[in-house]
Design a protein around this nucleic acid. Structure first.
Lengths: 340, 340
DNA sequence: CTGAAAGCGCTTACAG
DNA sequence: CTGAAAGCGCTTACAG
């Protein structure tokens, strides 16, 4: 390996701060960590020297013995604007702390990319926020190694890590109730091929509420992978069937938009010929050409809570917390009242 | 600060590998780094012990003296699916290397959030890929501290860092040429309030080609910030003017979709009453309800090249490289031929 | 309250 | 080709 071209302008270290302030290296370290056992006058002196010299703690060195004050967050992809909402919440929770969040994107399917998880642990992240996959064995293994909080993974019985979720069962219920009260009866669900507990819950909510509304004979759950091609095929199949549904409840907005696209290309009109409801209430729902009704699960709140719980756990909490927020339907034109 | 609850299962260190393999610690380090001066037999022995013990290098410790094999990438936001294309290219470039990429999101406007940049440097990232802001002074300062490559920043004269871009001037030119050849004459541009060189180039290409097509009298550049509200206001103002444009060229897809939304709500039909062209050719262009013509700048290629250049620079290259890819128009219904 | 010293897990000259 | 030793910039018991 050749010599790196980086010409380090010799970083200011804790030692130089100590000399400048006329105190010991240990003292500076204590001030840095806000540890107890330091007099006010020393604290002031040290802070002054830090500012004067432009001292910045060296994260790798801190990580060798203590914390890195870095949280790792893994997203399943970067296409779904829902993650932008979550991140907004994460950032606002981090604002007044020493922590920073660094993101990784795991392209894999039902589990997190082990290489990425390992790499975050190798980099001494203090804790992990994992979004998406719900392989319990993997999550339990990770929780053994690092403080962990998940988003989008129902595991109410787990004690070794924290979870943050919206009530997906309720979300499925609300979607059906909304469509039913707007006059739709033949309501299908376009779901995801996955082991994910959140998808399972949405499906369950859909099924139960269909029964509840005495629409049990219309229950129809079609599952597809999260690729454009597979979604198109699934949507076409639904729309070309002799008992074409009057409405389709989709597991995420992204997919709902694709369904609108397929329906439009088939000459169907939304919502006259077909109503569509999505999930996540992302910004694309608001566009007039979509005007997509969607279940809002408060991404920002989920992000905020995940950070709060994770930092608590890093600081020593050992019992688990499982935070759940109630979703709500944001009605738009794509599911307008049939009679209206 | 309380004691962290992490029960480290005592990581396998380089020392234990050395003992197991019956060699020195230095030897293991050399094998780890693929450094020269190690016999084949020793290399084999060491690798075997590493595998047997499940050794994983401790990134923070490596970072204290050498490299961390971590690249930092900063995105301006998570809403634009264009960044997903870039990341796909980044990942495929990284596939056969030891490097990993970690993402940060900087919400600020015309410069990168210094706190985020500093934090990546504090964390001993080996190099940085920065997307978006183009404050030259800031970029030059960063380049002094770390190997740097930018995406979406034209700086052909700079020698201290590398740049990767599409030819935004050509992109602006192509958009106008496409619209003009499809019969549109009164073509406005909806641009971004920014110092960004890529926006400047797109505007310049737009203006020059309008002149070239003898449409100079129609030149009209309106600038707005990247918020829904401001874009709506700007779009409405354009569409309510007495000399309403026949076509609007938007600086990114995202904004183009919002223009379609505003136009649709005003009762205008796309493309009969208004043609729209976007930029980035993101996946949302394909939806039938959008069917948005867009300038494709090959995000994947940009991501790939940025990694290639950055790693070269980390390995010691000091002259700069400025990679430019030629964009192309992907025509869809939103700009269909007026006569057709 | 304050500080000297050991040590975190590596890499890097430097001898051999 | 191989290894002993110093050191990267911090934190952590442990004395004082």
């Amino acid at each position: 390996m050749e010599k790196p071209a980086v010409q380090k302008p010799s970083r200011v270290t804790i030692r130089e701060v100590a000399i400048d302030a006329g105190v010991s290296v240990a003292a500076v370290s204590k001030v840095l960590r806000d540890a107890y056992g330091v007099s006010e006058s020393m604290r002031l002196k040290v802070r002054k020297s830090m500012a004067k010299l432009g001292y910045r703690p060296h994260t790798a060195a801190r990580g060798m013995r203590g914390q890195t004050f870095t949280l790792g967050m893994i997203l399943p992809d970067l296409r779904n604007p829902f993650f932008s909402d979550i991140l907004a919440g994460v950032n606002s929770a981090l604002e007044r702390t020493q922590y920073q969040v660094l993101l990784g994107v795991s392209q894999s399917g039902t589990t997190f990319d082990d290489a990425l998880v390992d790499s975050m642990i190798d980099r001494q992240m203090d804790g992990l926020i994992l979004i998406g996959p719900t392989d319990q064995q993997q999550l339990l293994d990770i929780a053994k190694r690092k403080p962990l909080a998940t988003i989008g993974n129902h595991a109410p019985g787990v004690s070794s890590y924290d979870t943050v979720n919206n009530d997906d069962y309720e979300g499925g219920t609300l979607a059906v109730r909304h469509l039913s009260s707007n006059g739709y009866r033949n309501i299908a669900m376009l779901s995801l091929i996955t082991e994910s507990t959140i998808i399972t819950q949405r499906e369950l909510g859909y099924r139960r509420e269909m029964m509840e509304q005495e629409l049990g004979s219309y229950i129809n759950v079609v599952r597809a992978r999260q690729t454009m091609r597979e979604v198109q095929i699934a949507a076409k199949k639904l729309l070309e069937a002799p008992d074409r549904p009057e409405a389709i409840f989709c597991w995420t907005d992204f997919i709902a938009l694709e369904v609108i696209s397929v329906a439009t290309e088939m000459g169907l009109s939304i919502p006259r010929d077909l109503a569509v409801v999505g999930y996540d209430n992302t910004m694309y729902c608001d566009f007039a050409q979509n005007s997509l009704t969607s279940v809002d699960q408060s991404g920002e709140l989920l992000g905020l809570q995940s950070v709060r719980l994770l930092i608590e756990r890093i600081k020593g909490r050992t019992e688990s917390e499982h935070f759940v927020v109630t979703p709500r339907v944001v009605a738009r034109n794509s599911s307008a009242d049939r009679l209206g």
